[in-house]
């Protein structure tokens, strides 16, 4: 068993937008009522070894919160999340990049953020650069890169740093057609190696070939958990129905 959610709930206070002194003072005097907002409500599912999971649902359904909980970025307020193995999150590629550093410097920094040791980074360096296809530009500052190049570099670091579980938040449309093909192949061989992916996507066709299971979330609750085809059919049926109304 690789990932298990047991009755997990997560809520956020409503007024988290502005962390100012007056907000806190107003709260002490009871002027602001904090009804918690449930991002996830009583979510349970369990992935077997090497199974990949697609997470579908409309905007604001709680998909990204689920991914953050699996990545250990924030603790659940109720229930338990169990994860076996090292996780690399591909949430928003390039979060750790700085435009004034060179591609190579950003590569090393990103690898260390993902938990790689100095030795391992040096060993993987050439392979990451080669996979990214950045070539001789690797020693230029990142601000001279196109957005496609930045995405390619970030994806290459994450996929080459050998995580056990990969969390992906809508990022597969990276780079040109040939790089997309290459990253697709990398993900397929990643799966063949018995490793798992958690895959958030709005586009059902993108996840169909990549995942075994799917969970459909709506307003923080699980609508359906099952094989990827069943769940996607039901989800799409529901979407079409809503559009017809």
């Amino acid at each position: 068993m690789l990932i298990e959610f047991q009755n997990v709930s997560k809520w956020f206070p409503h007024s988290t937008g502005r962390q100012l002194l007056r907000t806190h003072i107003a709260r002490w005097f009871g002027r602001v009522h904090n009804e918690p907002f449930y991002a996830l409500r009583n979510v349970s599912f369990r992935l077997q070894d090497g199974e990949s999971l697609a997470i579908v649902g409309s905007n604001g359904a709680g998909k990204s919160t689920l991914l953050s909980l699996a990545a250990g970025l924030t603790p659940p307020d109720e229930g338990k999340v169990v994860v076996n193995g090292r996780i690399a999150a591909l949430l928003e590629l390039g979060s750790g990049f700085h435009p004034d550093l060179t591609g190579a410097e950003n590569l090393v920094l990103n690898a260390s953020l993902l938990g790689l040791s100095k030795r391992r980074t040096n060993e993987l360096f050439d392979r990451i650069v080669e996979f990214s296809g950045i070539g001789e530009f690797i020693d230029d500052p990142l601000r001279t890169y196109s957005s496609g190049m930045i995405m390619r570099l970030a994806f290459s670091v994450a996929i080459q740093c050998e995580p056990d579980i990969l969390l992906i938040d809508e990022v597969l449309a990276v780079g040109d057609a040939s790089f997309q093909e290459k990253s697709r192949e990398a993900l397929v061989s990643f799966r063949r190696a018995g490793k798992a992916m958690l895959f958030v996507s709005h586009s059902p066709t993108a996840v169909q070939g990549m995942c075994d299971r799917a969970v459909w979330i709506d307003h923080g609750s699980v609508m359906m958990f099952g094989s990827v085809n069943e769940v996607l059919d039901a989800y799409q049926g529901r979407t079409v129905l809503q559009q017809g109304q």
Partner: peptide, 28 residues
């Protein structure tokens, strides 16, 4: 493989602290 349970405590990161901090300082 190490198992992690995220209850009240979470965020288990088994990376290289010294390497990471050195990189962050160098970046600055």
């Amino acid at each position: 493989m190490d198992s992690q349970t995220f209850g009240s405590d979470y965020l288990v990161w088994n990376g290289d602290y010294i390497f990471l901090i050195r990189n962050l300082v160098e970046k600055d």
